[in-house]
Design a protein around this nucleic acid. Sequence first.
DNA 1: CCCTAATCGAGACGGTACGTCGTGTCTTTCG
DNA 2: CGAAAGACACGACGTACCGTCTCGATTAGGG
Lengths: 216, 216, 216, 216
Amino acid sequence: MGADATRRHHGNRHGRSEQARLAVLEAADDLLVEKGFAGVTIEAIAAGAGVAKQTIYRWWSTKTDILLDAFLQDAAEDLPVPDHGDVGRDLRGYLRHLAYFLTRSDAGAVLRALLGHAQHDSAFAAVLRARFLDEQHDRDRLAIERAVRRGQLPADVDIAAEVDQLVGPIYYRALVTASAIDEDFTDRLVDAFLRRVGLTTNGDRPSGVNGRAELS
Amino acid sequence: MGADATRRHHGNRHGRSEQARLAVLEAADDLLVEKGFAGVTIEAIAAGAGVAKQTIYRWWSTKTDILLDAFLQDAAEDLPVPDHGDVGRDLRGYLRHLAYFLTRSDAGAVLRALLGHAQHDSAFAAVLRARFLDEQHDRDRLAIERAVRRGQLPADVDIAAEVDQLVGPIYYRALVTASAIDEDFTDRLVDAFLRRVGLTTNGDRPSGVNGRAELS
Amino acid sequence: MGADATRRHHGNRHGRSEQARLAVLEAADDLLVEKGFAGVTIEAIAAGAGVAKQTIYRWWSTKTDILLDAFLQDAAEDLPVPDHGDVGRDLRGYLRHLAYFLTRSDAGAVLRALLGHAQHDSAFAAVLRARFLDEQHDRDRLAIERAVRRGQLPADVDIAAEVDQLVGPIYYRALVTASAIDEDFTDRLVDAFLRRVGLTTNGDRPSGVNGRAELS
Amino acid sequence: MGADATRRHHGNRHGRSEQARLAVLEAADDLLVEKGFAGVTIEAIAAGAGVAKQTIYRWWSTKTDILLDAFLQDAAEDLPVPDHGDVGRDLRGYLRHLAYFLTRSDAGAVLRALLGHAQHDSAFAAVLRARFLDEQHDRDRLAIERAVRRGQLPADVDIAAEVDQLVGPIYYRALVTASAIDEDFTDRLVDAFLRRVGLTTNGDRPSGVNGRAELS
DNA sequence: CCCTAATCGAGACGGTACGTCGTGTCTTTCG
DNA sequence: CGAAAGACACGACGTACCGTCTCGATTAGGG
């Protein structure tokens, strides 16, 4: 890459400028974090990215499209589902991570903003579901599905309903009450789940120390 | 004289025009339902209410302030907590009603829009909590608190955590997945709760017919 | 009059409040001098005078009406026509004073503002003429008329045309070029007039010292 | 291409739209003539010109800026100074034209409005002087300067003072008294001037005798 | 090895909505 | 019944972004 900062890409007959694309996504992300959703304007993104407005409109329709792209770029694989062969342990780790992601990470802030916008624009809500939420929902089911496949859980578990009982309270706290989500809370969700499906917890729940360790 | 339509309130020394206030709230509500959140502009509200913009700015700061007022005006007491002396029955009725309110009523649509905006504006989020969500959260706890007071439930129930497990999944479906919330789902949440706190369900859950009856 | 400043006149069933009238006129004048014409608003006058807007509208129609009243109140008799029995001397004194009045006095600033507004509003122009300019024009003629009556000047002098040649250049400089008007200039106007009507000037024009003396 | 009415200029990298510029100036002019100065609002200009408000604010600061531009566009060369080789004849023609221009032409109406506004806004007054009045003042001097150069007039004529005595009364009548200005009046101004500078005005006979004789 | 067409930067354009200010009208309450 | 207080409908202000458009420069691939 040229060391000359003024030496910029100025068009290319075949295909778009990757440089411009990344600059736009980063500028949008930065604006959201620094100025909030209202500070994310196409003009501010263009200025921040050193890009012409038309270049943005050529590739995106709305600012939320950009934010969604930026979010997917950064955070797509941010929520791996642990696989230790034990549903309880897997879910505990997963929910802790989910809570952290939603309430404390930059990517989570973007997602909350997108979910907020989805309440105002059902077309965007559909896009958000198609491009992220559905896939995320699949990830949410994964630990349980694996356990069913392993025979650890009965095959007639209503996975959809169980998943919503596991993640629903976390989203609720993240989006509605904005209250803290500690590991006690997420662990308790898992315990309740395990009891519902007939797996007793082994007495004491893992201490915070263990939980911390699993997070890393 | 009072019936004369041209006889309008045009200001007076002591206090605002109730007529203007109500017209604004109704116009805002109508716009949200008819044109969506983006259609709610101060100018459109003013035009729809037959009111000057300045009159709006005199009493409200933002359009979401207006929507919140409109929401509180209409829906404050829309979610009564049933009190049959039986936690299970009370909660089943309450959650069914909550699900209906959130996903199917006009007021619920306003609330979803406000929650969406709260994701973009933390100052507004605080206001929304102070003026509605906290109070609503108290309502959510009520059935359980009554049961504890009656001795139906042990005194050491972690009400906060239990409530979030009851209502969290409902908000989650309303705000995130936009999937349907049938009575099976809400009833299942109550059953899980009852089992958690050591009250066994009486075998069959009430049929939809009973549920309907309780709703009315 | 009560020493209590908060003790104000609050209505009276017999006629208007002279106190309010004077406060309005003074406030308008002050605003013009301090903030310029754009700073003269009915609201600012009301605030400055400690008077209700309606009280102003009860007695005046426009802010220029107020300024005109204020102007007439203060400056009506500010331009006495000297009468020494000598046209030349009278005119020289008068024009010097006129130039000073137009370009340097506060009242002159108000008059210039009113003349400016008259260019934008022919109805006001008519009012301004009726209430001040016509009378002023009469004053402008006075020295010459007296001289004619005294026989100092021939009876067939076209007074209107002569007056306009005397005062026109002064207004022109005050309103258009904004250039300084010294006594040389006004004296020269008088000299030209005297020569036109057949009166030779007495050689040397009076020095500035004499002029000053005549002004006071 | 040019005949297609929908073919509009919509911005371009290098410079502004001439079409928009002219539409604005014309709309402003039309508004002044039809509705008067108070009818000239930025919004009305924008509407009348079929132009966005921001396009106006991009290039002008105030409505009087626009009017000044419109005035200069139309009327810059509206006042040619005749050059017949005879001061008297030149001045008579010039002053007649000036009087007509100030009191009867549309451009004169604009100028009177601008001079009116200049009384309210000294910053604008300076601009008006810089962009028109100074140049106009030069034009006013031109006939006399030529005559001096020709030797028709003595070199020590105080041109500034003479010019103000010539045009001052005309501006005075146009701006202050709003009385008619016939050719008798303007001719009389010229006659007075000629007598002041020592040229007799009896008919067309040039009093070049003095000038020429003194020259040789 | 140049030609040429897609893409880039820049930025003016027609618009919509913003939040503010001043106008002139009206109502209430006080003295 | 006049005055203070101040809410009201109205209309213009000047600003911020929107999404569209033109323009000249840039750049790779196909002729």
